[in-house]
Design a protein around this nucleic acid. Structure first.
Length: 466
RNA sequence: GUCCCGUUCGUCUAGAGGCCUAGGACACCGGGUUUUCAUCCCGGCAACAGGGGUUCGACUCCCCUACGGGAUGCCA
């Protein structure tokens, strides 16, 4: 009821383009997107590129392109903070006029010294407001600071964490405008959330402590209150926030390895959230079942084996045609044309479950498209000796006269094995190794039938002469 | 250091005072299916950080401790 009367829900994803789209970012964007869909609202994207040193257009493009292709398209054209300087400056003027800000000329050296002393005295390092009542004028050496209330507290009602209190006395007077006149993160962030009419801020837990500061800026500007949800962080195996040290962090890397977008989204959504005994969620399922307030409060370790499993499931759910299309680019990277095999459909069907991701599956397919470069050492050591080679010579002769189809080949091999009174692996594995270079493949008759007779025989010869 | 957030199997989690001999999933280990591998099926291992309260009763509520994370920038 309340929701109906209040205004439309608007969420936003606000990355800074200092790197490619990170999977933690995908998760944040996902939750923002889903929440907006559930409330018939809007999902917006804002590029926070006020750090001119580290922001690049390449990263920005990567983020935007990836968001769209993974299915989290913004509802409006993304905006860039770097285009909006005037707006921030106007807001700063407004705060100055209201008397809630002042100019400060402390040098970095002075501030460092101050913090050092505070730390030595066991105090929290924070700006002590020494310029607050000096009545300094604007100059190229002054920064603009917000005059934060000295007493009182800020209470945040976080959707995930509940009530969180901060004492104003713990906060110092943050910088709004740098001495070069440029606005800082907090100012821009607050102003844009207002200008974009954001209602709900869903972001990482690392911003929780920033929230009271931002609320003070909102108050100084007379902006309305926002709804907050601070997400638990995605962690590495050592429980520290996920970074390149732990695993691949870039969405691009997972795509290149052949993880499906839907599987990546599934894994990320299950990090911190669950729904009964369900494990498989597609985006539309999340829009139906997901609930922001059900998110876990503790950080969640990103486990690649879970992604592998989700990927296996999502791969299995693909139609043959979709699977083939998903696989094709990974074969292309290996210079293989997927249709070049005369029985590509049978081949691909039989190899679909060979591994957890598409690049690995593509790799496993190599021997069927072109001659493999080397034998699996372990397999050769275990199954290939002079006896095996003698046996292969006999089998080769049998093959030469055989009609080249799965059933015939299976029968022929079986009869040979029984006649020779040899254990099955002793007969089958050498043949398999000859064909594929390794000791695993689909059933042998099928494997053989996937090759031309000439090629199969040539490969047997190759192994005999090893 | 200070402030904030957190703490259930190795990992992701269920659990909102009795339903818990703490459930599920992944991983792992066995077994079955398969000529091999994968898939699939069956089974197993494995956790409430510690200590105090409150209560007839605590994984669930309160406090303390420990541990982990985040924040403490003229970065975002």
């Amino acid at each position: 009821m309340e929701k109906i009367l209040s205004k439309k829900v608007v969420t936003r994803f606000a990355p800074s383009p200092t790197g490619t789209l990170h999977i933690g970012g995908v998760r944040t964007a996902l939750f923002n997107y889903v929440y907006s869909r559930q409330n018939d609202g809007l999902f917006l994207v804002r590029i926070e590129d006020t750090d001119r040193e580290r922001s690049t257009k390449e990263f920005e493009n990567n983020i935007l392109k990836n968001l769209v292709s993974i299915g989290l398209s913004p509802d409006e054209k993304p905006i860039n903070q770097s285009d909006r300087n005037d707006i921030y400056l106007q807001a700063a003027e407004k705060i100055i006029e209201s008397g809630n800000a002042y100019w400060c000329d402390c040098s970095s050296e002075e501030l460092d010294q101050m913090r050092k002393e505070q730390t030595e005295n066991g105090k929290k390092p924070m700006y002590d407001g020494r310029s607050r009542n000096l009545g300094l004028k604007r100059s190229d050496k002054t920064v603009l600071r917000l005059a934060t209330p000295l007493t009182g507290e800020i209470i945040i009602n976080d959707i995930i964490r509940g009530e969180v209190k901060f004492q104003n006395s713990e906060l110092d007077d943050l910088i709004l405008l740098r001495s070069d006149g440029t606005p800082t993160y907090h100012l821009c962030n607050v102003v844009d959330d207002y200008e974009q009419e954001i209602t709900t801020v869903i972001r990482g837990e690392d911003h929780l402590s920033n929230t009271p500061r931002q609320i003070h800026i909102q108050n100084a500007l007379g902006y309305p209150k926002l709804e907050y949800a601070h997400l638990p962080l995605v962690l590495g195996t050592d429980k520290k926030r996920l970074s390149k040290r732990h695993a691949a962090t870039s969405l691009d890397e997972y795509r290149e390895k052949g993880y499906l977008d839907s599987a990546i989204l599934n894994t990320l959504a299950r990090l911190g959230w669950s729904k009964g005994k369900n494990e498989i969620f597609y985006l539309e399922d999340l829009i139906k079942d997901f609930n922001l307030s059900e998110i876990q409060k503790a950080g969640a370790v990103f486990d690649i084996t879970k992604l592998d499993w989700h990927n296996t499931q999502h791969l299995a759910n693909l139609s043959f045609q979709d699977f083939k299309e998903a696989l094709e680019p990974h074969l292309k990277k290996l210079n293989i044309d997927i249709d070049k095999h005369k029985n590509s459909e049978i081949l691909i069907r039989s190899m679909r479950t060979a591994d957890a991701n598409l690049s690995l599956i593509a790799n496993a397919l190599i021997p069927y498209y072109k001659n493999f470069e080397s034998y699996d050492e372990h397999a050769v050591k275990k199954f290939i000796n002079d006896d095996a080679k003698e046996m292969l010579k006999e089998i080769k002769v049998l093959f030469m006269d055989a009609s080249w189809d799965e059933n015939t080949l299976d029968k022929l091999l079986k009869e040979y094995q029984i006649k020779k009174e040899l254990p099955i692996p002793k007969v089958f594995q050498p043949v398999r190794i000859a064909l594929t270079g390794a000791s695993k493949s689909p059933s042998l008759g099928l494997t053989l039938s996937l090759f031309d007779k000439n090629e199969a025989i040539a490969r047997i010869d190759r192994l005999i002469s090893l």
